Simulated assay, not measured.
Amino acid sequence: MRYIIIGAGAVGGTIGARLHLAGHDVVLVARGTHYEALRDRGLRFTSPESTHEIPAPAVTGPDDVELGPDDVLVLAVKTQDSAAALDAWAPRPVTGGGTAGERLPLLCAQNGVENERLALRHFRRVYGVCVWMPATHLEPGLVAAPCAPYTGILSVGRYPSGEDDTIRRVAADLEESVFLAPVVPDVMRWKYAKLINNLANAVEAICGPLTSGEAQALGDRAKAEGVAVLDAAGIAHTDADEQAALRSGKVEIRPADGVERGGSSSWQSLTRGTGTIEADYLNGEIVLLGREHGIPAPVNETLGRVAGICARERRAPGSMTPGALTALIDAAASSSTPR
């Protein structure tokens, strides 16, 4: 199996690097200065034990690679970029006949819960990947994954549910590549739990590191509101005990010397000044479900709105104090309370 990593940033670059180091064929898909760095120098991948130079081939898109029947597509772009990526890759021909959408498996190694639904419109075989893996991509050509003994936990399963031989083969390859990769029949149950944890990403992006009690309280409010909305919607999600049992002692942060420890994916988007942020598909998912089920979600609505402004105006992380953000959220919560 050859792995086409669509979006070789923090998550995709780490998955691609580890697969390559384990002897698997990998193609890295990137754009802009990151692609240029990968093309000219390869991917520089830093882990707790060492720094590796990954000479895997790099391309900018589907026009630059000939797809074969044994290829596996790994979608690792931010959700706001998924539609364009799916549109580009699904119609590409595969050697022997048919298109990628008809013949190839597609894994969604992304935050949020919308990507799999988007993918299923284009691909017959879609798989979810719940990513528990602190990784950082702040400079072109550089990716760092500071965890051990496993680089990360990638719970995998067929979408919307179940498992098959393909995902079991993928999981075996990931296990050979320093990941813990349990095959689960209910992968979205795990991804909804990860969604709850990701709701605090916007707080970190807006206010900076969650070191103050006030910032941590905002993150807790966002998560509590998210749980209430999922429960009202009847959506199952793993609880804290299940998550802790899976992660305990398996993914511990051990930063390498000289490598900056980055924040969440949303924090990294603002740090790189990309102009976009995935809050619409994290906090915005809770807002959407809340509106569908009549549950106000003022905390996540405010976080999503302010994070979007920060991204569009290319503000650096920490551009607003926790106190100022709390005041905005309290005002929104007050106006949404039934009288």
Rank of each mutant, 00 (worst) to 15 (best):
V187I: 14
V113Y: 05
A200I: 01
L270H: 04
D239G: 11
T151F: 08
V126R: 07
I153L: 15
G101V: 07
E176C: 15
T60K: 04
A58M: 08
R18F: 03
L138H: 15
G68L: 09
D63T: 09
D64G: 10
G249C: 10
A181L: 02
D280N: 07
E175G: 07
E292P: 08
N300L: 03
G141I: 01
N197W: 13
E102H: 08
P140G: 04
M1N: 02
P48H: 07
G323C: 02
N198K: 02
C147H: 04
P55D: 01
Q243A: 09
A236G: 11
R305V: 13
P296V: 04
A232Y: 06
D239N: 07
R189E: 15
V59W: 09
A236F: 01
T238S: 05
A171K: 11
K250Q: 14
A172M: 01
T302Q: 01
W132P: 06
I329W: 03
F123A: 02
T337M: 15
G213R: 11
G12H: 00
S155Q: 09
A90C: 14
E139M: 11
A316T: 10
A85I: 01
G13Y: 00
L104F: 11
S269I: 05
I277H: 01
Y150K: 10
A193P: 00
A144K: 02
L43E: 05
N198S: 14
R247N: 14
L303T: 08
E260Q: 15
A100R: 01
T211P: 03
R44D: 02
T95Q: 13
Q216C: 13
L325W: 04
Y192E: 00
I153E: 03
L21H: 05
G304L: 00
A90Q: 12
D81H: 15
A236T: 07
R31F: 08
V229S: 06
G68R: 13
N111V: 03
C108H: 08
V113S: 02
Y35W: 09
D164Q: 07
E66P: 05
H237F: 09
T166C: 09
T302N: 08
A244M: 10
Q216R: 15
V129M: 04
V229I: 05
V170L: 10
D257Y: 01
V113H: 09
A332N: 04
R221T: 00
I286S: 07
G308V: 12
R41Q: 13
A324Y: 00
N198H: 08
S47F: 01
